[in-house]
């Protein structure tokens, strides 16, 4: 791999490793296994890095497969849907629609000032990282993390308002 590409891979790994590890850990609930799966996923990314356009999406896709493989090695009869059961199916009617709206808002990149903002948001909002740990992971100050997270949440709430969810408390 050319030096410049390797440098980019290093920066990509540094940015997404916490997210991938967290996502895997929530599925396997074991630090050592999560570490092994992460290694496997990032080695695959290294091998295909030149052709990967969106590393975050690629990594989420690859980790699903890796986790599925992990379970299948343990139990060949494992169904992927059992591992990655779509929780949205557990919601019905209006709640289901509301979940879809929120999910779309959270995925809409207009709320984020780049991929790093998205990582920051996912770490705090989804994986419940503390501001302090998030700051250390991303090389930011705690105040900066707090400020950026607040700005993202405000932007998402504004988007939800525009989609008809005026009072977020109504969803609770």
């Amino acid at each position: 791999m050319p030096a410049k590409l390797r440098d980019r891979f290093t920066e990509t790994h540094s940015q997404y490793y916490p997210l991938v590890f967290s996502a895997v850990h929530t599925k396997v609930d074991n630090v050592d296994d999560a570490h092994d799966i992460c290694q496997e996923v990032f080695i695959k990314l290294y091998e295909k890095f030149d052709s990967v356009e969106n590393p975050r999406k690629w990594l989420y896709g690859a980790l699903r497969l890796a986790v599925f493989e992990y379970y299948r090695r343990r139990d060949p009869g494992t169904d992927i849907d059992d591992v990655f059961n779509d929780v949205s199916l557990t919601f019905v009617n209006g709640f289901r629609d509301a979940r879809i709206v929120i999910a779309e808002a959270m995925e809409d990149m207009v709320h984020f000032d780049g991929e790093e903002d998205k990582t920051l948001f996912d770490l705090i909002a989804v994986h419940n990282f503390s501001y302090s740990h998030t700051a250390k992971q991303l090389g930011l100050t705690k105040r900066m993390v707090e400020y950026r997270y607040r700005r993202i949440v405000e932007s998402i709430l504004d988007a939800l308002k525009k989609k008809g969810i005026g009072h977020i408390e109504d969803l609770l």
Partner: peptide, 9 residues
């Protein structure tokens, strides 16, 4: 939390 987006670590 309510809509099960959270996967806390």
């Amino acid at each position: 939390e309510r809509f099960r987006f959270r996967e806390p670590v």
